[in-house]
Design a binder for these strands. Structure first.
Length: 499
RNA sequence: GCGGACAUAGUGUAGUGGUUAGCACGCAAGCUUCCCAAGCUUGCAACCCGGGUUCAAAUCCCGGUGUCCGCACCA
């Protein structure tokens, strides 16, 4: 399925469309329609069940998207999230000022402040690397965060959060106090994050406003649950940074137990890799061979990370592996920085009397990107038709109710649809067109189960159910139908892994 | 941001200065139809936005916006 085909079906069926479409759209902004928002919500629910469900000491909060300047100053985003850019007066190319200087032999150019940068540029006046001419304009700070004036006088500044994680760190102190004061403690946020991307592209993959699902796990790196050490025998596909830089593309199957024994990864990290891998493979149904963990080396990692593996899914529509999530070991960076910034002690004393600043393991997940991945991976062609082979618990609509001949079976169909809705099932009643056409409509939106009402139904209240994947049909009674509709093949949720 | 290409019903497209802007799919109504986009009838629905040239612009020119491809960017 290529990118145009996916976008076309998205627009046609009300999954997704450009924001402000009637004004010509706006770069990097998309709105979800009824089908899309239902799918997105189910994806978020699955994520929450799988990750926040790991422990009773993990909780989801709902925090605002706007942060006072002091927060992003402390977190490092005000400095690290901004690039000093210069524009070539000749060809218009925009280049990072610090990289220009480093090319000229200037060490630590990244650490220079605005004025120093400007002075040094003046002194060295490097040529434009693209056209070889110039002149290059003065450097100006380009911050990837959206800033705004706060309050009537506009004297205070605020920023839209560049990652939802910050909201969890801000909540840490209160969550510690209202909770059981135990580590590990988890704080999850599913919500919008904002980045002023220079060139948003590829629809759901580079947006200026996007949804993240992130779980911050606060823990003691020297004393964590035994379950994190004994996670069973599982191999995951990994592409190590070293091999990637040597040209490798395909990952290798690696036993996590062996990685831990060799001391390459701490057990707490390996445990969450396993859990994350199973989420993509077993819950979202991505084929194992289309998932890989990409190791980021020190140079590539975000400034706060000690260990970072991106999770990538191979997407035909985007021509290869694309990031859909990541596992970041952020150490005590965030709590330490916010302790300093807020002048609030964020260290804790554990049950055993140990005093520490908890470390953070962040499980981060791009919701929109996975909506796209679910399309790329599960949309398939069946002759002329499109079938969206979504896992049934993710399908926007679970059951389609189809009266074979509306005039004759419409009343009973309406009754059945109402009964299913009362039972909490997402139902669509379709009376329009031939039954084959209606099956096709359901297939395209991934509805796993169709129920048709025919002449016999009126006599004995049995119905024909038809399954999306196999197209197989069989006749069931009312009592048999309800459990089928309400319990669509549930994945192995599982698992309160520890308490 | 830069360079190139592109922008026509909901979707995919035809239309090189004068067309009632065509076609397919779709959607809606009716007939038919007891199980996989069947058939027949009728209908719905479009020239991205703003300027300019011209007697006349979907068509030519300029600007904007957006999309795609390369480059750069993606802590």
């Amino acid at each position: 399925m290529n990118s145009d085909e996916i976008l076309s079906i998205f627009k046609r069926r009300g999954v997704l469309w450009p924001t402000a479409e009637i004004y010509g759209g706006a770069q990097g902004l998309y709105d979800y329609g009824p089908m899309g928002s239902a799918l997105k919500r189910r994806l978020e629910d699955a994520w929450e069940a799988w990750f926040v469900g790991l422990s009773q000491n993990y909780h989801r909060i709902d925090a605002v998207e706007m942060l006072p300047e002091a927060v992003v100053r402390a977190s490092g985003h005000l400095d690290h999230f901004a690039d000093p850019l210069v524009t070539c007066g000749n060809c218009g190319t925009v280049i990072r000022a610090d990289e220009l200087l480093e090319a000229k032999g200037q060490k630590d150019a990244e650490a220079l402040k605005g004025d120093e940068l400007a002075a040094r540029l003046e002194q060295l006046h490097p040529p434009c690397p693209r056209c070889g001419k110039g002149p290059l304009g003065p450097p100006r700070a380009f911050n990837l965060m959206f800033g705004m004036e706060f309050g009537a006088l506009g004297k205070e500044k605020a920023y839209l959060r560049p990652e939802t994680a910050q909201s969890s760190y801000l909540a840490f102190s209160r969550m510690w106090n209202i909770g059981r004061k135990k580590l590990p403690m988890g704080i999850a946020v599913i919500g919008k994050a904002f980045r002023n991307e220079i060139a948003p592209r590829q629809t759901l993959f580079r947006m200026r406003v996007f949804t993240q699902a992130e779980l911050q796990i606060f823990f003691d790196p020297e004393d964590y649950p035994s379950e994190w050490k004994a996670f069973g025998e599982i191999s995951v596909p990994i592409l190590f940074a070293e091999k990637r830089l040597a040209g490798a593309v395909r990952p290798e199957e690696v036993s996590l137990r062996e990685l831990v024994e060799k001391g390459y990864l701490p057990p707490f990290y390996a445990f969450h890799m396993a859990h994350t891998y199973r989420f993509f493979r077993d819950v979202l149904g991505y084929p194992a061979e289309r998932i890989r963990f990409l190791e980021k080396n020190e140079r590539e990692r975000a400034f706060y990370n000690r260990i970072q593996f991106d999770v990538e899914a191979e997407l035909v529509s985007l021509g290869g592996f694309k990031e859909v999530g990541a596992i970041h070991y952020r150490g005590d960076y965030d709590l330490t920085k916010h302790s300093e910034g807020s002048k609030t002690d964020l260290s804790v004393t554990t049950e055993g009397g140990k005093h520490l600043t908890p470390h953070v393991l962040e499980l981060t997940f791009g919701v929109d990107r996975n909506v796209w991945a679910l399309s790329d991976i599960h949309l398939r062609k069946d002759g002329e038709r499109l079938v969206w082979s979504l896992p049934s618990y993710l399908a926007p609509v679970t059951v389609g109710v189809l009266p074979l001949i509306p005039k004759e079976h419409g009343v009973l169909a309406q009754e059945l649809a109402d009964a299913l809705r009362s039972a909490g099932v997402s139902v669509t009643l379709d009376e329009s067109g031939s039954v084959g056409r209606r099956y096709a409509r359901l297939d395209e939106m991934g509805t796993p189960l169709a129920v048709t009402i025919d002449g016999q139904s009126k006599q004995d209240r049995t119905f024909t159910i038809r399954e999306r994947e196999t197209k197989e049909q069989r006749r069931v009674g009312e009592t048999e139908l309800l459990p089928l509709a309400t319990k669509p093949a549930v994945p192995p949720w599982g698992c309160l892994a520890f308490r």
